[in-house]
């Protein structure tokens, strides 16, 4: 079966004082039906812009999709008129963002806001939409939902607001839920429940989830498949078990070894990746990670373009991937 969402060579550029910057560079990956795909990367990796571009949300921020295609459920989204996109967004594709407070309108009750989404996309009566809103609040485990639907966003805690956002995102039974760092601003005990809830809803409805995060702990918790981004490119893609057990890209192992949790487990100090994250106005030649890579070989790694190559594990963008195979696995072995 065709994947639900398929990005092919998606490229996004933003104007800046340094000229036109390519912040998403030929990014390709699929999200299958009933699959949870995590895109993981640090700030500036292009993970959020990729997601925004895929659903036509970068233009408002001054960006432009300058190449590639995004197919969703058999339709091409790149170049699609906003009128048509609006029919898909919020209906077939639901969204949750990092800051639930800024995504909710403070002047309307949460029930009205969820009902509004349902009426817009389903054309049902007010009464029916309200009923649906309450039902959605129940589905995200808001206690006494019928009463709470009359409350305003400020009357909810951060974790509950995020659950309201989820209720709104799934109100039209989307085929795809896009979640951009939905638990990052929340405390860990609240995060645990939000992740559990997303998983529960995904299992129940069979929707696909595209989950963007910087936290490999969250990835391990929720992903079926993982796309690792660095410097506007996909550097590795693999099933979640394979990615953690046998990472193939030095950046992936670097991220893991930099995590305090992993270091504690191994009884060593976390190993920082030297230097700073590559910047769009000065991508290094060759592999974009090369200035920070301990395995760099001058020449092969520092010139030309490194291609994303498929093997039994998944995809990896490292010219030395085969040579490093054992060393990288050992680097993260417990």
């Amino acid at each position: 079966m065709d994947p639900l969402l398929s990005l092919k060579d998606l490229t996004v550029q933003f104007p800046s004082t340094h000229g036109l910057l390519t912040v998403v560079d030929k990014v390709s990956f699929d999200v299958g039906r009933n699959e949870v795909v995590c895109v993981v990367g640090e700030s500036g990796s292009g993970k959020s812009v990729t997601m925004q571009a895929a659903v036509g949300l970068v233009q408002t921020k001054g960006g432009r999709v300058t190449g590639g295609s995004v197919r969703f459920d058999g339709q091409e989204l790149v170049g699609m008129k906003n009128r048509h996109l609006n029919r898909i967004r919020g209906n077939d594709i639901g969204f949750i963002f990092q800051e639930p407070m800024s995504s909710l309108n403070p002047a309307y009750t949460v029930g009205e806001q969820i009902a509004e989404v349902v009426r817009r996309h389903r054309g049902v009566s007010r009464a029916e939409a309200w009923k649906r809103a309450v039902e959605m609040l129940e589905r995200v485990h808001i206690a006494t939902a019928a009463a709470r639907a009359h409350d305003y966003p400020h009357q909810f805690s951060g974790g509950m607001r995020q659950r309201v956002m989820i209720a709104m995102a799934i109100a039209c039974d989307p085929k795809l839920l896009i979640a951009d760092e939905p638990s990052t601003a929340l405390d860990v005990t609240i995060q645990a429940r939000i992740l559990q809830l997303i998983k529960e809803l995904q299992t129940a409805s069979g929707m696909s989830v595209l989950f963007i995060t910087h936290d490999l702990g969250v990835v391990a918790e929720i992903a079926d498949r993982v796309v690792v981004m660095y410097g506007a490119q996909v550097v590795e893609e693999a099933g979640v078990d394979a990615l953690f057990a046998t990472p193939r890209h030095p950046y992936t192992t670097g991220l893991l070894r930099a995590m305090p949790q992993v270091a504690l487990e191994r009884g060593e100090d976390p190993v920082a990746i030297p230097g700073t994250v590559a910047q769009a106005h000065a991508w290094p030649a060759g592999c974009r990670f090369n200035p920070r890579c301990e395995f760099r070989e001058d020449g092969p790694c520092t010139t030309g373009q490194v291609q994303l190559v498929r093997d039994d594990h998944g995809l990896v963008r490292c010219i030395r991937a085969d040579a490093l195979r054992t060393r990288l696995t050992q680097a993260v072995a417990a």
């Binding site: 005990t189 995060q191 979640v240």
Partner: peptide, 15 residues
């Protein structure tokens, strides 16, 4: 105990 167990560990098998 709850706080510690809520932190997701970067190992899917263990999770």
């Amino acid at each position: 105990a709850a706080l510690i167990s809520a932190v997701p560990f970067p190992d899917p098998v263990r999770q």
